[in-house]
Design a binder for these strands. Structure first.
Length: 572
RNA sequence: GUCCCGGUAGUUCAAUGGAUAGAACAAAAGCCUUCUAAGCUUUGGAUCAAGGUUCGAUUCCUUGCCGGGAUACCA
């Protein structure tokens, strides 16, 4: 932790037995010191008692202690811990100067490696609910985190437009001769409407089990590209894709390439044939093609239905190859729900058996459930992205209007839109990525608490102060000595810890770490803001120093939010 | 049946094996002639159970109980 100031700390404490892999953390009580480190490991190396060793380290430090202008002022032993007392002036100077560096808080773990990230891989003819939204939010953040860490990221999408879900939807539309197709220009959101039809189709099929054979036949015709079906397919497929594109644009997704199942499925079928020839795959019950992965503890995987139709796996085999063929990348990452963890283990094993050795990773995020139970299309209780977005927008619009009567409609909408996106994204990112979410609409539309608004409000406050001060801050002329209270020290330490947070978030594929960091930093700031006056101050030098700190806080928050693709507003 | 994930305040979530388990919501009480009250302060409240490893366990291991997911023709 505290990577930003670590080099300066070690400069003060060379050759006293504290190795460079020693990590610093915050003491449980600020009165103990500014930073601390535990001596368990260090003492073990020298075969000493940790409590004794802590005292010894402190003694050594006092012996070699250098000038008062160093970052480290003092060491104090407290049981097996050593607490570090920092020089406020030096701390402020280092942090507030370093923050202007390029790619501040970033690192170069990626070393220019090219990585493809595939998300959210939706199915056409289906709804876009908050589960998909979680996928996009995590994907977006991962792109940001990897770019911040020196990777060259290629975001791509894979659209499943050729599976049995499409078959069900088209078959149902045809069977019911839905008149709305003819007057489709009347439908406002066709992508959403189609999702509704798909849900209806599912309900119907569940009730009328006898249509199963009919669907099998329909799928055969579909996969053989029966012109009669293709017309409806092309039309409706386009509705979904246009709808997705609009959503992606709103959410700040920027795919460099899009793969379609309809263009890949045949290639997948060929791979299945090859696997059969190579005797990696075998013929199973009813003529289905399967692959026995039991030696690897991965059960049996189905590669082709007994009807000859493909399954997801059929296409995914081809997709893996296509990815590396079309774009020269060093590795590929997939983001899907954790319920597909097992599926991806199977997929990767099959590719491995086939002799495909490119690096592929699967990242699973937890399901989004409703607080009152499971979300399922069949129960008809899915929370759609569009609906949630509108609900939040309405609420925020009213509130913003009340606060800024002087704003015109256009400005109100612009600001509310940014706030809405921020609230949505924060809500779906605030939990640990791999954990199941219990989603509560009431909580999501609450404007208080652990919420994006809290952070954006903090930024808006700083913006406001900067405007009102009329000052241009020149770091070279700041008297850093004036930043000497505990709250200021805490803020500086928070800022110094930013890069460690980035690393942690990426290492665990877990953007929630960064979300929490933004909130905690904002909280620390609001505490400071309420306790100390920044502008209303007798001493202009103090105002300048404090304002410089405020701007640094804003810079870090905005940088972190940018990674999460969350925008801020000047005023709110 | 087997495999994977989870179980922490009333609720939703935090806590690389480290000092006194943190937040938010909800509940109770306060703070706007003062830089945006979408804010701040204060109060009460929790580690599923039993073993084990360790100087030290919410964290690691074992067992049990509870919940979720996966487990060849669902997507």
């Amino acid at each position: 932790m505290f990577d930003l100031i670590k080099p300066d700390i070690f400069e003060c404490i060379t050759s006293i037995g504290v190795t460079k892999d020693t990590d610093f953390s915050l003491p449980p009580n600020p009165e103990l010191g500014d930073l601390c480190f535990a001596c368990f490991e260090l003492a073990k190396k020298e075969k000493k008692d940790p409590v004794e060793f802590a005292k010894e380290i402190v003694g050594r430090f006092h012996f070699v202690k250098r000038a008062k202008t160093d970052l480290v002022l003092d060491f104090r032993a407290s049981g097996p811990y050593v607490n570090v007392i920092l020089n406020n002036k030096k701390l402020a100077e280092i942090v507030l100067t370093k923050i202007d560096q390029k790619n501040y808080g970033g690192n170069n773990l990626g070393n220019g490696q090219k990585v493809m990230i595939e998300y959210p891989s939706q199915n056409t003819h289906k709804e876009f609910h908050i589960g998909h939204l979680r996928n996009v939010c995590i994907g977006n953040s991962l792109v940001g985190l990897m770019e911040k860490s020196g990777y060259r990221v290629v975001p791509v999408n894979y659209i499943n437009d050729f599976g049995s879900h499409v078959v069900k939807c088209l078959w149902y539309l045809e069977k019911t001769e839905d008149p709305r197709i003819e007057t489709s220009f009347l439908i406002k959101n066709k992508q959403k409407w189609l999702g509704m039809i798909y849900a209806e189709a599912n309900k119907y099929i569940a009730k009328h089990k006898e249509v199963k054979q009919e669907l099998v036949e329909y799928q055969k015709r579909f996969e053989a590209r029966d012109p009669k079906i293709m017309k409806l397919f092309q039309l409706t497929r386009q509705w979904s894709i246009e709808g997705f594109n609009k959503i992606h644009e709103e959410l700040g997704v920027r795919h460099e390439k899009v793969f379609f199942e309809s263009k890949i499925k045949n290639k997948g079928q060929k791979i299945v044939d090859e696997l059969l020839e190579k005797k990696i795959a075998t013929v199973g019950e009813g003529g289905a093609i399967i692959i026995d992965l039991q030696p690897y503890n991965l059960d049996v995987a189905l590669l082709r239905k007994s009807s000859g139709s493909g399954v997801y796996l059929t296409s995914d085999l081809a997709l893996a190859k296509e990815k590396f063929k079309r774009i020269k990348v060093d590795q590929s990452i997939n983001i899907t729900g954790t319920e597909q963890n097992f599926y991806f283990k199977q997929l990767f094993k099959i590719l491995e058996l086939e002799g495909f050795h490119n690096k592929m990773t699967h990242i699973g995020y937890g399901l989004v459930n409703r607080s009152d139970g499971k979300m399922s299309s069949r129960l008809g209780n899915v929370i759609l992205y569009d609906d949630l977005k509108n609900e939040i927008f309405e609420k925020l619009f009213q509130e913003t209007k009340n606060r800024h009567e002087e704003w015109n409609e256009k400005k109100l909408k612009e600001v509310t839109q940014i706030l809405t996106q921020a609230v949505l994204k924060f809500t779906l990112l605030k939990h640990e990525a791999e954990k199941t979410i219990s989603f509560d609409i009431k909580e999501a539309t609450n404007m208080e608490g652990y919420n994006a608004l809290y952070i954006l409000y903090t930024v808006a406050r700083i913006n406001s102060m900067e405007r009102k001060s009329g000052l241009k801050i020149n770091k070279k002329k700041i008297n850093f000595q004036l930043l000497d209270n505990n709250e200021e020290k805490n803020l500086l330490l928070f800022i110094a810890n930013y890069s460690a947070i980035i690393k942690k978030a990426l290492a665990n594929y877990n953007p929630s770490v960064l979300v929490k960091y933004c909130f905690d930093l904002s909280k620390e700031f609001n505490n400071y803001y309420n306790k100390f006056s920044i502008l209303k101050n007798d001493d202009l030098e103090v105002t300048k120093a404090r304002l410089a700190l405020c701007l640094a806080v804003r810079r870090v928050i905005e940088d972190a939010l940018k990674i999460l693709t969350i925008k801020t507003v000047e005023e709110m």
